[in-house]
Structure formats: structure tokens, C-alpha cells
Nucleic acid binder design. Structure first.
Length: 213
DNA sequence: CAGCGGATATTCT
DNA sequence: GAATATCCGCTGA
């Protein structure tokens, strides 16, 4: 008998810990996105840790900028960035305020509201692909710049909240190199995923691509 | 299935 | 000016 997922919110203290502790602990948690048409609920299956100013792969590595400002703020808030000219990706800020670490939400399983997610993910060939990859996840949950800086731990009127769900047993957590991270930052095995889960994205090493003339 | 290149704009150097 | 925490569609096996 499997216990049903715990639908109570994760407290802010959950995020106020070192990011390498928080990241694997996020697997199996539930993200609730309230849209005008109804809620979409996602079970997290793949995440990546970025450890502030010490981490060459982190957006915060070269200090505070307009883009990464939210990373330097309080834990439990949402950091959204825009990349490759087309895509949004979302993170949850971790550690004490000023630590500038965050967890990139890379993939998950839509457990409720799949019909709503499908309307934005028309290229997905099946429901397992709806949120298989960080930009796909953000697209499926209708996450864009407007959610940057919002509080995922706030009670009440928030567009996005995170719930306890059912944490994944450590025996089922795998880890390996981060995806698409260039240079020295690529060496850290700070990508975490649920073993054998079909919604986890395929690993791709970073490939620098020159802009066409 | 793998490999490739195009799309696209913000961000930082 | 160059790189990017990516995805998609096409090609060839």
C-alpha cells in the first residue's frame, strides 16, 4: 500500500539549507501551477544544483547582476531566466539569503492537468514528454518572466506553490554531471534524477555552437 | 536511433 | 561581439 502524496506546502526552512542537500530532496515533490483554466500539478523527477558565487556553472558566479538578482534573495523564491532566444527555465532559490544558490527544475511528470499542459506543448508526442527538459517544463507550466521572484512558499494567493508530495527514497536517487554546462562547471555531478523514470530528460554534454554569419 | 544545424534575443564581455 | 543551465525538425542509418 502506497501512501497518497502529502498536499501540504513545503515550509521555507526546507529551502534554507545547503543546495546539495535540498536538490535530491526535491525529487518526488509536487509543484502546483494555478492557471486561469485550472491547476497543473507536476511531480519533480530531475533537478540540477547551482551553488552560488563559488560555482563556475552558476549564473551567480560573476556576482550580482540584473538577471540573477533573485538568486541572491530569500530561499523558496522562483528564479526564471530566458535563454537561447526562445526559452524560459525555472529554479528554486536555496540556502541562506545572499548565498545565491538555486535548483534548476529539469523535468517532471504531470500528474494533474495534462490536458492544459498539452495545449502549450503541441510538439510533445506523448505525455511523458510534456515536461522532459527544463524549457519544456516551464512551457508546460506556463512559466515565464512574469513569475520571476515570486514566492513558492507563500500561503494564499501565489501562481506557483510547492507541496511535500512523496519524497523519493535515497536508494532511488541517481546523480551525474550537469547537462549543457560549459567549462569547469561541467565537472560537478550535481544533476539528480529518479532512477528509471521515463520523464527524465536525456543527458547532453555542452556543445559550443558558433553563430552563423 | 544518432547527428546535425537553424531558430531566436537577452546577457555579459 | 560571442555565448548561451535548449528544443525541434530533418537527414541518414
Amino acid at each position: 500500500m502506497i501512501a497518497s502524496p502529502d498536499r501540504t506546502p513545503l515550509p521555507r526552512e526546507f529551502f534554507d539549507r545547503p543546495v546539495l542537500e535540498v536538490a535530491p530532496d526535491l525529487l518526488g515533490r509536487l509543484l502546483v501551477r494555478d492557471t486561469p483554466d485550472g491547476p497543473i500539478v507536476l511531480r519533480l523527477t530531475e533537478v540540477e544544483a547551482y551553488d552560488g558565487e563559488n560555482d563556475p556553472g552558476s549564473h551567480a558566479y560573476r556576482g550580482r547582476t540584473a538577471r540573477n538578482e533573485v538568486m541572491f534573495g530569500a530561499p523558496g523564491h522562483v528564479y526564471v531566466y530566458f535563454t537561447y532566444g526562445m526559452w524560459f527555465c525555472m529554479n528554486l532559490v536555496c540556502g541562506a539569503e545572499g548565498r545565491a544558490s538555486a535548483v534548476l527544475l529539469r523535468a517532471g511528470e504531470i500528474v494533474e492537468g495534462a490536458e492544459l499542459a498539452r495545449t502549450r506543448r503541441l510538439s510533445a508526442r506523448n505525455d511523458k514528454e510534456l515536461a522532459k527538459g527544463p524549457a519544456r517544463l516551464a512551457t508546460a507550466l506556463d512559466v515565464d518572466r512574469s513569475l520571476n521572484g515570486t514566492d513558492a512558499c507563500a500561503t494564499g494567493d501565489t501562481p506557483l506553490r510547492i507541496l511535500h508530495g512523496t519524497p523519493v527514497d535515497s536508494s532511488q536517487v541517481r546523480n551525474g554531471p550537469r547537462t549543457g554546462v560549459s567549462g569547469e562547471g561541467g565537472v560537478h555531478p550535481w544533476r539528480y534524477w529518479v532512477a528509471d523514470d521515463p520523464t527524465v530528460s536525456p543527458y547532453r554534454a555542452h556543445v559550443p555552437r558558433r553563430r552563423r554569419s
